[in-house]
Amino acid sequence: MPATALRKPWRSLRRQREAAGFGLWVFLGSEVMFFACALTGYAVYRTLWNADFLAAARETNVVYGTLNTAILLTSSLTMAVAAEGARAGLRRLTLACLAATIAFGLAFLVVKGFEYREDIERHLLPGPGFALPAPAAQIFFAFYWLLTGVHALHMTIGLGVTATLLWQAWRRSRPLRSPAFEVAGLYWHFVDIVWIFLYPLLYLAGRA
C-alpha cells in the first residue's frame, strides 16, 4: 500500500477506510429520506385514488420493467464481486467486473430509453392529450416519470463513478486497496435497492 493513500486528517489507513464507508452510509441515510418523500406522496395518492392508480399502473410495460430489474440485480452481483476482488487485490477480476457493471448499467438505461419512447408514443406523458381519462391517472404517471427519472439520474452518476474507477484502476493510478471501490459499490447497491421498491409500486400494481 503506498504511503500516499493516507490523507491529511487521518493517522491510520484503517481509520480512513472506516470513515469512507461510514460517511457513505450516512449519505445513504440522506438518500433514503430523499426517496421517502416522493414515495410518501405516492402512498398518499394511491390511498386516495386506489382504482385510478391501479388502472394507470396497468399501462406501464411490465416486460421492460422486469427485464430492467433483472439487469440491475445482475449488475449488483458484478459490482459486489468487483469490490471484493479489489479488496483481495485481484486486478483482472476487478477490471472485468467493473466493466461488466458498466455494461449492465448502460443496458438498463437503453431499455429505459426504449420504454420511455413507447410511453411517449402512447401519450402517457401527463398533460393535454393524456391517454387515460381519470384525472388521478395523471398523478400516477407524474410519479412514474419523476421516480424513474430520478433513479436514472442516480444510475448515471453511479456509471460515471464506476467508469472513473475503472479508468483509474486500468491506469494503475488508484491502488486496488483504495476504499473507493467499496464505497462506489455501496452506492450502486443502494440505487439497486431503490429500483427493487419502485418495481412493484410502478409496474406490478393492478396486474391481478
Binding site: 398518499v44 385510478d52 384525472p135 388521478a136 407524474a142 419523476l146
Partner: peptide
C-alpha cells in the same frame, strides 16, 4: 413540465 402532483384540479392535494 406541468406534471400534476399537487394540482387540485387533477386530484392532487396541496396540503400534502
Amino acid at each position: 413540465f406541468g406534471i400534476p402532483i399537487f394540482d387540485p384540479l387533477r386530484g392532487g392535494d396541496p396540503i400534502l
